[in-house]
């Protein structure tokens, strides 16, 4: 799906080489490790990189923004909504790269909102939604965009525990039903360990480990990533990971 060779960006990313296949891939690392910068390079926002990025076999530099938007969707950590806009109008933006009639577009928007149980929000003003509600709408915008690769930068950071469990459940369903590759940046290791298929760990602008989740159950690897000890346990088929104080 995504193949990166010899990627360098300013002094933030150093010699990144990685292949990202299907499934949910957690991207972890301490603050300033280069996770968001890497994702912005893959999404075409950070342009002046050296090296090559291939998305579904096509060189990123040869893809137009419209083409890229139909293949890949990036949900940034923060989006500032300074002006009044309805949820429907905002989600309508996600269909920009497609030439289609409004009726079809509205159906896609309604279906997406139904998937995240927010049908009643369609005419609400996005500006007045809570942080958590807004993050769910951003998930809906990824669904509406219809691309097969999603890059999500801390998509559930503002959700309460119940909502975040629901959020990851929806994410897994969408991923398996629609064969979508999801690259997920998060600091919530509990969700990363329990919901991801693979994990990529970054430190100081390089990838230090890419492996299955089981590998990351080793405390030493997490200590290498975050420079802190963790307690990892398995209870009722779920992994619990907390930093030891």
């Amino acid at each position: 799906m995504i193949e990166i060779t010899d990627l360098n960006y300013k002094e933030i990313l150093n010699n990144i080489n990685v292949k990202i296949e299907s499934g949910i891939i957690g991207l972890i690392g301490a603050n300033g490790a280069g996770k968001s910068t890497l994702v912005k390079c893959i999404s075409g926002i950070n342009k002046n990189y050296s090296g090559e990025i291939f998305i579904k076999g096509k060189n990123l530099k040869n893809l137009s923004f419209r083409e890229l938007a139909t293949i890949l969707c990036y949900i940034p950590q923060k989006t500032f909504i300074n002006y009044d806009i309805s949820v429907r109008d905002f989600l309508f933006f996600s269909r920009y790269s497609y030439n289609e009639n409004i009726k079809n577009c509205n159906n896609i928007i309604n279906n997406a909102l139904e998937k995240i149980n927010m049908q009643n929000y369609v005419n609400k003003n996005l500006k007045i939604l809570s942080g958590g509600e807004f993050q769910k709408i951003m998930l809906a915008s990824a669904i509406v965009q219809g691309s097969s690769i999603w890059l999500l930068d801390e998509p559930a950071s503002a959700l309460d525990p119940g909502s975040s469990v629901e959020f990851y459940k929806t994410l897994k369903e969408i991923c398996s039903n629609n064969n979508i590759t999801i690259v997920l940046i998060s600091h919530d290791l509990n969700h990363i360990l329990n919901n991801c298929d693979n994990i990529i760990a970054m430190s100081k602008g390089t990838i230090i480990k890419k492996s299955e989740v089981a590998t990351f159950l080793d405390k030493n690897i997490l200590k290498e990533v975050y420079n802190i000890d963790f307690l990892i346990e398995k209870r009722q088929d779920k992994f619990i990971c907390i930093p030891s104080i």
Binding site: S43, G44, I45, S64, F65, R66, E67, L68, A69, T70, C73, Y74, I75, P76, T79, F80, I81, N82, Y83, I85, F90, F93, S94, Y96, S97, Q145
Partner: peptide
């Protein structure tokens, strides 16, 4: 006009929706 509508909410958002800002 449609591109301007999207750009109003930030260049990052516009880029990811396919707008050549």
């Amino acid at each position: 006009s449609r591109e301007l509508d999207i750009m109003l909410y930030g260049n990052e958002l516009a880029h990811t929706k396919g707008v050549d800002v």
